[in-house]
Design a binder for these strands. Structure first.
Length: 312
DNA sequence: AACATACTCAACCGCTAAAAT
DNA sequence: TATTTTAGCGGTTGAGTATGT
């Protein structure tokens, strides 16, 4: 024997909710709560609706503090970042955006944000191959990982550089940038003594750290505090082509693009975040890159541009 | 003004894991 | 332990609305 059936499917009302029904549901829940039992609720609230329908109506529309209307730039950024990281797990994404429902975010993504993104990332549509990387780098100590890197450990009180981006980043902002980790020891990030001899080819950026700052190297402007030129980058998953870099316009879409290019066949595509398990999500959710507390946007910029990225 | 097309978003569908019996 | 249902989730649909011709 199992549970009793939830409702008589033939006798429940379907379709749009009337204001009267909304009022009944709202009044009942405000007075009595859901009691953790949606199935029993319609009868108690004198509604000819399925419990499932009541739950959806409450969660997506009637619940207090629901935010309707335009999404902010910051919300865009969070959605893009999380979508790039964990895919279409709307409930997790919604949990990061107070007042927004998973349904709302899903609709917004499917109808607006995705298109917005496509419009600033023409490569997605063209399925363009990344540029070839010089042969001489094939034997570099770098390796491309198809797996998610562990979260960066950043000091929240420090400022970080991304070389060529002409600005400093707070830790949470920096964590949203493509992640570059030290080969052997994540904790060595920021340690100036760990710079090594790898140098990105001309026209490319490579990450670099300096003193307590991380830097994306290249352009000769980056140096380690131990005096070496170039930068230790350890495990690197991409090299950014210099001339295509939008310096001040490093956008909210960075992580999304980053994931999109991270395909082992080396082509752009949307086939992202396919195989993360719960543990991955937990790790990711604990990482600073998923923080919603800040924005890396230039306040003066209205137009958002994507910084093209390539990997080798 | 009338029609066609595109867009939005609330609601439903179907699936899975968890809970109840 | 097996069976049945619920809760919650992501995907899809379609009515209503906006925009274009």
């Amino acid at each position: 024997m199992g549970r009793a059936p939830c409702c008589d499917k033939a006798n429940v009302k379907r379709g749009p909710w009337s204001p009267e029904e909304d009022a009944k549901l709202r009044d009942y829940i405000e007075k009595n709560g859901t009691g953790g039992n949606w199935i029993a609720l319609p009868q108690k609230a004198d509604l000819k609706r399925c419990g499932k329908s009541c739950r959806l109506r409450w969660l997506n529309y009637l619940r207090p503090n629901i935010k309707h209307g335009e999404f902010s730039i910051e919300e865009d950024r969070v959605i893009c970042t999380l979508y790039a990281t964990i895919g279409s797990r709307w409930s997790i994404i919604a949990a990061q955006l107070p007042g927004r429902t998973d349904n709302d975010i899903k609709n917004y993504w499917n109808t607006k944000l995705k298109k917005k993104l496509m419009s600033v990332i023409p490569q997605f549509n063209q399925r363009k191959a990344p540029p070839p990387f010089p042969d001489s780098y094939q034997n570099s100590p770098l390796s491309l990982s198809s797996q998610m890197l562990p979260p960066l450990s950043l000091d929240s009180s420090s400022q970080y550089y991304a070389c060529g981006l002409n600005k400093q980043f707070a830790s949470h902002e920096f964590a949203s940038l493509p992640q570059y980790l030290s080969t052997n020891d994540n904790n060595s990030l920021g340690n100036p003594n760990n710079c090594s001899s790898f140098q990105a080819p001309e026209g490319y950026y490579s990450p670099l750290k300096e003193s307590n700052n991380f830097m994306f190297g290249g352009e000769g402007s980056c140096s380690c505090s131990d005096g070496s030129s170039g930068g230790q980058i350890g495990q690197t998953r991409e090299i950014i082509k210099q001339e295509e870099m939008g310096f001040q316009d490093y956008s909210i879409y960075s992580d999304y693009a980053y994931q999109c290019v991270e395909k082992t066949n080396g082509y752009f595509g949307e086939n992202i975040a396919e195989s993360y398990d719960l543990e991955d999500v937990k790790k990711l959710m604990g990482s600073t890159s998923l923080s919603c507390n800040g924005s890396i946007l230039d306040e003066n910029k209205e137009e958002l541009k994507l910084m093209p990225m390539y990997y080798f």
